[in-house]
Nucleic acid binder design. Structure first.
Length: 240
DNA sequence: GAACATGGTGTCATTACATCA
DNA sequence: AGTGATGTAATGACACCATGT
């Protein structure tokens, strides 16, 4: 992602809104902040461990952590689909099913997301899950996806912004070039009348290069017009 | 105190399903 | 009714960090 660093300062808009009511437990930086205080208050992974019977207790490893999550979500899926108005095909493993959250559920999740884009896993996730009659894993997934959506949207906004800036700069560039051409023409016409005849032949042969090397004796000054637009420092100068 | 294992959680990319035009 | 587009729940891989040994 090329926008990563650029995105960083704008993306925070949402996240800075947190006023962690449950003090010191919300990771505020979306990237890689695991909070020292949140870890291991261990109510040892209550719901996640529920599925023990289906995957017999082999030794825990890194992979088993993943499996644990996976199984937990399967479990929750089953529970949820039977709990809501969706039909449960009763154990027939026909691929994964996908529940649609109700409006009330997603509304509540949205509210929670406005407050904290990251959940305090020990508390908020559990509580939310309980309130919504969902499994904690589902709440977790919803937040993950929601963060991803937010980020995507942000990236799109930034992309549009940069496009507009690019267009503006192109226009400005075009305008300035045109202006330079006009001024060149103007200068040529005036100098040709006054100086041209007096210049030695050697100088005349160098004439075309004046566009790169302005004559120090008769310094050419541009009219005071805006040359550069820096969209990132000046907000009012550009259209974007 | 360093090294390692384990567990929890994050991001990211992707898949799979539900819904709609 | 069939179909492609879109939205989104869910999954898998991987990384990081905290904690325990």
């Amino acid at each position: 992602m090329g926008f990563h660093s650029f995105a960083a300062n704008t993306q925070l808009v949402l996240e800075l809104g947190l006023n962690s009511s449950s003090s010191a437990s919300i990771p505020q930086n979306p990237s890689k902040i695991s909070n020292p205080t949140t870890h291991h208050h261990h109510h040892p992974s209550l719901t996640l461990a529920l599925s023990g019977d289906s995957c017999g207790g082999s030794s825990f490893s890194n992979a088993s952590v993943k499996r644990e999550r996976e199984v937990a979500s399967e479990e929750s899926e089953r529970v949820n689909t039977s709990g809501t108005d969706q039909e449960d095909e009763d154990g027939s493993v026909s691929g994964r099913k996908k529940l649609r959250l109700t409006k009330a559920q997603s509304g509540l999740l949205e509210e929670a997301f406005k407050l904290h884009t990251n959940l305090n896993p020990q508390k908020q996730k559990q509580e939310l899950a309980k309130d919504l009659k969902l499994k904690p894993r589902q709440v977790e997934v919803w937040f993950q996806n929601r963060r991803a959506r937010t980020k995507l949207k942000q990236t799109e906004v930034e992309c549009d912004y940069l496009k507009k800036c690019c267009d503006t700069l192109k226009d400005e560039n075009r305008r300035l070039r045109q202006e330079v051409e006009e001024l060149k023409a103007e200068k040529v016409s005036t100098t040709s009348q006054t100086v041209y005849m007096q210049l030695p032949a050697a100088t005349l042969s160098m004439c075309p290069s004046y566009e790169h090397m302005p004559n120090p004796k008769t310094p050419f000054t541009m009219p005071p017009k805006p040359h550069f637009l820096n969209p990132f420092t000046t907000s009012s100068s550009a259209a974007c």
